[in-house]
């Protein structure tokens, strides 16, 4: 697996589009959300990832943290997010409104650009470069945003399973990141 694909998978697990979708598909609201909301959410979340990745080196330098050490912190955050997804198959978020306001919050932050995506952007931005991190996150963010514009219907059960599976994957990624952080120089 190429580095880019590996990173795209990490962001898929960190963003967890299925959990994002489940958080937006309220059972009392069976219709799809407007694409406008998804578009705003995607754009802002991508900007957030790109900005975090671009500023990663400067941020870590300002905080006096080596990228290797930050991997441990990132792993811990991702571990918690992954465990939450496994248990709840949702992303913890406030109530969801349609329109561009809903695209900003909660869709962009914290559904798409949540703590796991933030620390992934910083950690991988510092290690692999901002461009690589930002482009690798596009697919996960796009799928997550698009799913909110899909009519829930029969996909809920499938999304629940996928969300927990991606949560498990995030736990595995997090453990790997912690081990990498401990084992690096």
């Amino acid at each position: 697996m190429s580095d880019w694909l590996r990173l795209a998978f990490v962001f898929l697990a960190a963003v967890n589009p299925a959990a994002v979708a489940l958080s937006s598909w309220a059972p009392w609201r069976p219709r799809a959300r407007p694409l406008e909301t998804a578009g705003v959410g995607f754009g802002l979340a991508l900007a957030g990832v790109a900005l975090a990745a671009m500023l990663a080196d400067r941020l870590l330098a300002a905080l006096d943290i080596a990228p290797e050490t930050f991997r441990i912190a990132a792993g811990i955050v991702m571990l918690a997010a992954g465990a939450y997804a496994v248990a709840r198959a949702r992303v913890a978020a406030a109530s969801f409104e349609d329109g561009w306001r809903g695209g900003i919050a909660p869709l962009a932050v914290p559904l798409l650009f949540g703590p796991a995506a933030l620390v992934a952007a910083i950690s991988y931005g510092a290690d692999e470069g901002a461009w690589m991190a930002a482009t690798a996150s596009v697919a996960a963010l796009a799928v997550g945003a698009w799913l909110t514009a899909v009519r829930p219907g029969r996909w809920t059960t499938l999304a629940d399973g996928v969300a927990r599976l991606l949560g498990t994957a995030l736990v595995a990624v997090a453990v790997g990141l912690i081990v990498e952080g401990v084992r690096d120089i």
């Binding site: 905080l63 006096d64 943290i65 050490t69 912190a73 811990i76 914290p110 703590p115």
Partner: peptide, 19 residues
Amino acid sequence: MWAFGALALRAVVVPPERC
């Protein structure tokens, strides 16, 4: 919540590395 998490992380896992 985010701020609390970030502070906890800073205090426990990633305090500054002083060289």
